[in-house]
Amino acid sequence: MQKYTTCPVCSSKNITFQYMAGTARKPKEPPKWSVNQCEDCSLVFVNPRPTWDELGDYYPSGWQCYNTYVSDEEDVVEEAKKLNEYRHIPIPVGKRLLDVGCGGGSFLQVFKKLGVEVAGVEPSSSAAAAARECGIDVFTGTVEEYVAKNGSNEKFDVILCSHTLGATPFPVETLDCMRQLLAPNGYIWVAVPNADSPYARKLGWRWHSTDYPYNLINYTPKTLGLAGEKAGLVVQRNSTYSLPESLVYSICLWRRYRWFVPHKVTRLLLNDELIERKTKELDSRNEGEAIIMEFCHPGT
């Protein structure tokens, strides 16, 4: 375990213990993760944090995160062409796209078929190997290791970081490396769970997307924007999105822990029309289950 003595975003020494958290994916395991909060910027993070070696037991052999395929890929590609976007990202046809934390490369497979020049960075050797077997150019390691080895002369028009930044122990350094790789007039697209969403606030560490210890840090729009600012970037777009299945799970968790209502009972009461309306309401107020934030170079 390695201890933070300062906040990993704002570098304040004013950090305090909040609570002991359990492992989200192992609910029967007793609480074992010490969670701190920065009293200056409000960032919430595991402290001390486990090392990569200590996290080994939580990742199965051959772990890929994102698989190497998307079900009904042809239909997905055709739908993306009609909308001119995929997973909330405008399709940068003919441009260069880097996926930081690409897993087995499923995002990149789709973007490649949409006419985008793609590459990935992935610390899991098994996931990186699986992506390369599908013809994707992937560097095995972190983006910091990529820059240290290859420098930053190679530029990318779009850099994705989808639900990866929460697992990086030093987010400002991670974003700074992305900034170094970003082409002029390009942008960095980051998605993370929204720790300021209503059910995140109600459930605390029990919220499914808190996901300790796979996530070491949980962000609000304020703290994510601050991390980008500290890395020399500016926010050009900030929004939230709520996958229906994610919101359903949050509601089920809340009712189970608050009123002991079984998951199956709650699910029967939640029809698709109701969930669609609730997701739209949350996202209209930027209070959805996940944050989408785009960063660019100052002055772009």
Rank of each mutant, 00 (worst) to 15 (best):
S246C: 08
S246P: 01
S246Y: 05
S246K: 01
S246I: 04
S246L: 06
L247P: 09
L247T: 01
L247C: 10
L247G: 07
L247D: 12
L247I: 06
V248Y: 05
V248W: 04
V248S: 12
V248H: 05
Y249W: 06
Y249L: 10
Y249R: 14
S250N: 06
S250F: 00
I251P: 02
I251E: 03
I251Y: 04
I251T: 03
C252K: 11
L253W: 06
L253T: 12
L253H: 08
L253Y: 06
W254E: 14
R255K: 11
R255Y: 11
R256F: 13
R256T: 01
R256D: 08
R256Q: 11
R256N: 14
Y257N: 01
Y257I: 01
Y257V: 01
R258N: 14
R258G: 04
R258Y: 12
R258K: 12
W259P: 00
W259V: 10
W259E: 14
F260T: 11
F260E: 15
F260Q: 15
F260K: 14
V261L: 12
V261N: 11
P262W: 11
P262S: 15
P262A: 14
P262Y: 11
H263N: 13
H263A: 12
H263S: 09
H263L: 09
H263G: 05
H263C: 09
K264G: 07
K264H: 11
K264C: 12
K264V: 14
V265M: 12
V265P: 01
V265C: 03
T266N: 08
T266C: 10
T266F: 05
T266V: 15
R267M: 15
R267S: 13
R267I: 06
L268Y: 11
L268D: 14
L268V: 11
L268W: 10
L269E: 15
L269P: 00
L269I: 09
L269Y: 08
L269D: 13
N271V: 04
N271H: 07
N271F: 03
N271E: 13
D272G: 10
D272A: 15
D272K: 15
D272T: 15
D272Y: 08
E273C: 05
E273T: 11
E273Q: 10
E273V: 09
E273G: 07
L274Y: 13
L274G: 03
L274V: 13
L274T: 08
L274N: 03
E276M: 07
E276V: 03
R277D: 09
R277Y: 11
K278R: 13
K278Y: 12
T279R: 06
T279A: 14
T279Q: 03
T279W: 03
T279F: 03
K280P: 08
E281I: 07
E281C: 04
E281N: 06
E281H: 09
L282D: 07
L282M: 05
L282G: 05
L282F: 09
D283C: 02
D283M: 03
D283H: 02
S284V: 02
S284L: 05
S284C: 03
S284N: 09
S284I: 02
S284M: 04
S284Q: 07
S284Y: 00
R285P: 00
R285L: 15
R285K: 14
R285H: 14
R285N: 07
R285F: 05
N286V: 10
N286M: 09
E287T: 02
E287H: 02
E287G: 01
G288S: 02
G288N: 01
G288Y: 05
